[in-house]
Every structure is written in structure tokens, then in C-alpha cells.
Design a protein around this nucleic acid. Structure first.
Lengths: 153, 153, 153, 153
DNA sequence: TTTT
DNA sequence: TTTT
């Protein structure tokens, strides 16, 4: 699979609600979560403290959906890495509507539970569902000779 | 200014159209661009090559909007770093609509023109508009003595 | 200030030690922290569980160094956004040595404390030290008319 | 495979030299490239323009190494997504040395050629080497009923 | 709707 | 040297 371009979203925030779990016809799980990020600043005109919260729809597929279902709940803090996806659908008046979500799926999708030193707490990357034949890290341990010599570090 | 959470989008893609430039009442420029990212893969059922393109609305403010207006055009390849923002608005039927955009603004916003070694070609980070008092890189150039000695790595 | 290229590091991990605080001649604070990230997998040859930890040197400057000094300690979980920087120095034998660090500084530098629901817990972006004149979010709230019409979403 | 923490590097820059290709005992390819990122600013003391270039060692494995060998050359502009890895080795005097590299490998590794609309130009994510059973994008295309209804956004 |  |  090839791709042209980069489409990446990174979020760290807290869930506004428990995850909603669905299942696709194939049986695969889908988890919808809503994540808040916020910024606060002092309004220079009025001098008062202000805050703005942004809510993000995040949809997880596959094993990550299962992990979300099992371990995440309202208030959980998570790290999310996914991609933007805008879906077109029609409301009950038959009008086109667009919804943009952060899709966490397949390779490149990551969900890490933060903080909660409870339960198993372990993060997981969705691309890592078939670890069978993959060594996660380089075994190329020879001295970096020619590389070191050539390059003006 | 403090923030709780991380809200970051990174895109690399090509503009579908020339930028649209607006001006706020204050006079500041606003540039809207539409960026395509795509993925292609071989459909395992039919065996044929498929491609899916995602379009991203990106809104740039301030100096970056000016740069976009001046240097970007349909087809330009850009690197974008911004944040997700969902705006609520009402259509002509008075119904609520939501639009999610990637906002590139203020600190943390980055726009880099890619490829084109033409024109000035240089990228720009929006947080770098007031360079007056900022030294971009560490001046802490003393020998890293205790840090290096204490820590094996 | 302009830049050509992108140099960005994102880390989420735990501190291996309390921060080390230094001060530059100018009086500005510098904080050195060491952050662990790890991956675990099942070795397909032996079938046993393995784990590998990577240690990252992170150097924070300015206000973020103060925040690190005050709130971070051994074991703290943090989100870091900075840039790679390789420094050349000479060991006591007069030989060149190179050390690569993640520098969190100025615009683009971010440090967010995670989990710890203790103390003030609030994250902070270093680019946000002079909030005086900056409004963090878009005020451009007019209906997205022409933008919506033109673009095949 | 599980991981605790996030270890991510994103680079956009140009190669300082042609890739160096090696082969592991297993036969797998390894490509070393050196990527420059730079920043320029006006020195507020002297008023003159200054520039600083940072060189990054990047090591690609597997199919991405082959792609690098085939398509990248001195001057090529690339987008890289990998992870930090510090290797310990010994110089000819038997002293420990440490080298930090950006490793692009396995899941999470991405290399995208930029600009050059020549050759096949297409980027590739290393996690996508075994596309056999993976559909890259969501097939969950049913109307987003309950999710959309429940959540105001 | 979260969190501080 | 962290964390699980």
C-alpha cells in the first residue's frame, strides 16, 4: 500500500463519556470516544481568565476498539494518534451532512492510556496486532563506521 | 497561557485550489486552503488498485495567511501543522451545521512550502512572527559537564 | 524567523530521575530530564516476553525549565514536544564527542504533565510565555460560505 | 506487542548525500541517510541574518531501505517519521561512544518523497509492507446513527 | 461531555 | 534511571 501525503492527528485529552461500542457486520468492534482538549488564557481586554474546550470525535477499530471498551471510561486520559476522515451522510431531511472524525485504525493508529496506574494500563498500537514475525527494534548493531566517517555531524 | 491536552494535526499534501483570502474586520488576513492526502492499495477481493483521497480544510491566520496568499497555488505541496477546531454555524434553513477545520495560527502553527525550490520557497512558522526578542536556538553552549558525567546515557 | 524543514520530536514517557536544574549566565533556568519509552513484544524464536527501554535526554529552557523544576520528579509521566539537537563537545582526552538531545524551547516547545491529578497539574507550552497580546483561537466566525460552496468536501 | 510511551520523530528536510546502503546478514537492506533541517533568524544584537543547520542521521530498514536506495539522492526532500534510538558502540580506543539515530522501521515508520513529481514519486509507509489482509480505510459506512444523534458534537 |  |  502506498500513500501520497501525510494525514496525522495527535491528541492528548480526557474522555467526556464512556466509550460507545458498536460492531460491524463482520463482527469487528468499533469504539467511539469523545476527547476534550482545552486552552486557557487571560483575556487582555477584560483581564479575566478564559478557557475554551475543543471536543474531538475519535473512532477506533479492531483490537484498539476492544482495548478502549475494556479500559477507557469517562474521564480517562489518553494519547491518540490517528487520521482525519470526513464522512458524508444525510440527515432525516435528506440533506447532506459532513462529520469529521479522527480514525484510529490499522497501521499508524495508536492509543495509549495515560496516567491511570490502575488495571493493566498498557498502551497499544493498532499496527501491532500481528506481532508474530516482527522484531520491534533494529538488530543492526555493527559499528557505524563508514556512516560516521562520511557525514559532517 | 496554559493548556490541558494536546491538539495537533500534521498534514502533507497538495492544494486542490488556489487559496481563498479573506480579511477580518481588524484587517488581518485569513487564508482558506483545501489540501488533499491520499492512500492507494490493492483491493484484496477484486485485486484491483484503489485510491482514496481525503480533503482537508485548512485555515491560516495572520502572517501565514499572507504567505499562503503570496506563494501557494493550486497544486502546491505543503507541510501544515495546526489544530483541530469545530465551528458551529447555521445554514440558510436555520439548522445547526458543524465544520471541522485545521487551524494554523499563533504559536504551534506551522506552514512549510515543499518541493518548489522557486521563489523564496522558505517555510515559516506562525509562532515566529515576533522574532524580536527570541533566540531560536540554545545559547547554552558551555561544556555539558555534570549532565554528561552523571548520566551514562 | 524562517525555517526550512521540520525538526520535531514527540515523546510520552516517565522520568528516570528528578530533573537537574542549571542556570545560564543570564540567569535563565535549564532543566535536564531523562525520559523512558519502552516497547515489549514476544520473541518469536524463544517465545518469551521481551522489553526494550529507550532513554531520551530532554533539555528544557526558560519558563518550562522552571515548571519542570517545580512539578516534575522521578517517575512523572510527561508529554514532550521539542526538536533534535546534536551538540559537539570534547571529553577529557580532547576527543570529539556528540550528544543528541531533545530541546524544548521557545516556540514549538511543549511540556505537558500527564496523569498526576496532584498539584496544579497544568500543562504549559513554552511558546506561551508572553500571552499578553495573543488570542489563542480564531475569532473569524462568519458563515463559511464561499469556502463551503467551492470545495468538493 | 505493547508499548508504554510514545517515541516519535518527524522530519522534513533534504539529504546531504546519496543514501548509503548496507545489508544485514539476513539479507535485508539498511539505508543510512543524513537529513538537514535549518532555521534562520535575524540576530538582534548584530542585526545580521544567521542560519543554523541541524543534521539528522536516519536509518531505514526493510522495504523502505530499498525505496530509499532506488529513489533518494543527495538533495532529495523527504518526510520522515521514525523513532529515536541511541546505540552504544566502541571506538578504536575501546571507549564507549553513543550515537543517536532516527530509526524508520516496522510499524510507525514512514518515508515520503516530497516535491519531485518524477519517477514514481509515491511515498510509502513501512508498516504497509504486508498489505495482504489489511484494508487501509474504514469500511464502517453505515449511517452514523446513534453516534451522531447522541453527541451534540 | 472531560480535566485542572 | 522510569513505568507496567
Amino acid at each position: 500500500m502506498a500513500s501520497r501525503g501525510v494525514n496525522k492527528v495527535i491528541l492528548v485529552g480526557n474522555l467526556g463519556n464512556d466509550p460507545e461500542i458498536h460492531h460491524m457486520p463482520s463482527g469487528g468492534a468499533v469504539a467511539n470516544i469523545s476527547i476534550a482538549t482545552s486552552e486557557s488564557w487571560r483575556d487582555k481586554a477584560t483581564g479575566e481568565q478564559r478557557e475554551k474546550t475543543e471536543w474531538h470525535r475519535v473512532t477506533l477499530f479492531g483490537k484498539l476498539a476492544d482495548v478502549a471498551a475494556q479500559y477507557l471510561k469517562k474521564g480517562s486520559q489518553v494519547y491518540i494518534e490517528g487520521q482525519l476522515q470526513t464522512r458524508k451522510w444525510q440527515n432525516q431531511q435528506g440533506q447532506d451532512q459532513y462529520t469529521t472524525e479522527v480514525v484510529v485504525q490499522g497501521f499508524n493508529g495508536v492509543m495509549q492510556m495515560l496516567g491511570s496506574r490502575t488495571s493493566n494500563g498498557q498502551g497499544m498500537a493498532s499496527g501491532q496486532q500481528q506481532p508474530t514475525s516482527q522484531q520491534p527494534q533494529q538488530q543492526y548493531n555493527e559499528p557505524p563506521m563508514d556512516f560516521d566517517d562520511d557525514i559532517p555531524l
